[in-house]
Design a protein around this nucleic acid. Structure first.
Length: 397
DNA sequence: CCTCCACAGGAAGCGCAGGAGT
DNA sequence: ACTCCTGCGCTTCCTGTGGAGG
């Protein structure tokens, strides 16, 4: 039997793995100084009792948006002013009501419970900012909010009505296109200022990685070339820093399991497949049950051959396309099998929209060669992976 | 040309949970 | 205890639309 000492002594590669976690906020954020400055400029009026402008932050996943704003908030809290910043993830707080309730809860504890009307929340909001308080609401993944137009309108009106104080918004989005879906009026008020977070280059990723490796791994336990490789792979695929961190983390785990002393290129290569799977699993696992049922039915159909692939048989065709019609039929069958009541077609489309926003599926309108007007659905990830993850989560034998 | 297929997505409304007011 | 109200997830009904078939 191995003793604990044996096991502990094997952990020679990592020093502090939490440094590699995407939630970790490092002391300095390299290559984001410009954005930091700009953000602080925009937020600063609130510290002298003026309302800051609304702001939208753009950038693909893993370009440091959330991290930067969190850093700003840390600094902000050190300042003693009648002002506060509230961070919300809109995947969870996805409606005007939920956002207002969550924010106001910090001021009015009774709001812990549900059931209050929106007018009541609105009154409380006026009351709070009316005393001169400056409130900044940070809306991460702002494109998940279902009634953003109304939220913007409500806050604009609150600002007009309150004599002093104010409430402003900082929206964070990874899709440039979501702007178009907005009502022109709320668009102009939301887009008073914009900041773009560009994707990291391979060289920048290399520096970020080596900084974290220095903190998170034991000295000399990672080959320089392994860091370079991880940075290069990431830059080629997406430029997503989270991906790069996960890659080096998994590579470290692989090396440790193999009993190696140093992480090398080989470990990074091997970790690659793992990271893909891990990241998709992460998003899928947090999905509500019905979304997973939808995904499961799409994945199994994509694997077992759809009408589309049979129709296109012999012609050059990419695997995994589905007609939306057959996808819905399969979904109904799956619900039957799971003894769950299937949702209506209308609502199924809403589910698909949600999944598309998360990049788990993509849809394209039908082109020539097919009768009528159908939509083609394709999984964003490998069908086998999606199938296995959802299968496990739904307890399907 | 018109028609109809196979969808997209808006509008209205329903049941429910969990308040507030009486 | 009761009625009334609100937001939310959802269904039902409806109108709109691009291209294939007649």
């Amino acid at each position: 039997m191995a003793s604990f000492d044996d096991i502990l002594s094997k952990h020679t590669i990592f020093n502090n793995p939490s440094v590699l976690s995407p939630h970790y906020i490092p002391k300095t954020l390299p290559f984001r100084e410009e954005q930091m400055d700009e953000l602080m400029q925009i937020v600063s009026p609130s510290l002298k009792k003026q309302k800051p402008k609304n702001l939208i932050i753009y950038g693909k996943t893993g370009t440091g948006k959330t991290c930067t704003i969190r850093k700003i908030m840390e600094e902000f809290e050190k300042m003693e002013a009648d002002a506060s910043m509230h961070y919300l993830n809109c995947r969870i707080y996805n409606s005007r009501y939920r956002i207002l309730q969550k924010v106001l809860k910090n001021y009015v504890p009774e709001l812990e419970k549900a059931g209050f009307g929106l007018p009541y929340l609105y009154e409380k909001l006026i009351e709070i900012i009316g005393k001169g308080h400056q409130m900044i609401i940070v809306l991460d993944e702002i494109d998940m909010i279902k009634d953003l137009d109304e939220l913007v309108y409500t806050l604009t009106r609150a600002n007009d009505e309150a004599v002093s104080g104010g409430a402003s918004m900082i929206g964070i989005s990874n899709r440039l296109s979501f702007k178009d879906a907005l009502d022109p009026r709320s668009r102009s008020s939301l887009y008073e200022t914009e900041i773009l977070f560009p994707s990291y280059t391979s060289e920048q990723l290399r520096k970020i990685l080596s900084q974290r490796v220095l903190e998170g791994f034991n000295k000399g336990s990672v080959e320089d070339s392994a860091v370079n490789l991880a940075a290069a792979i990431t830059a080629r695929e997406s430029g997503d820093a989270r991906y790069a961190l996960k890659l080096i983390m998994k590579a470290g785990e692989a090396a440790e399991q193999a009993g190696k002393k140093k992480v090398d290129d080989d470990d990074v290569e091997k970790a690659r497949a793992n990271v893909e799977l891990d990241l998709t699993a992460e998003t899928i696992n947090t999905l509500p049950e019905m979304h997973q049922v939808v995904l499961y039915s799409i994945a199994s159909l994509a694997m077992n051959g759809s009408r589309y692939s049979r129709l296109m048989d012999g012609i050059e065709t990419e695997e995994g396309f589905l007609f939306s019609g057959e996808a819905y039929e399969e979904y109904e069958k799956t619900c039957d099998k799971l003894r769950k009541k299937s949702r209506s077609l209308r609502w199924y489309k809403e589910y698909l929209n949600d999944l598309e926003m998360l990049g788990l599926v993509s849809t394209t309108p039908s082109s020539k060669g097919i009768r009528g007007h159908t939509t083609l659905i394709r999984l964003g990830q490998k069908p086998e992976d999606v199938f296995n993850i959802t299968k496990k989560n739904l307890f399907i034998e």
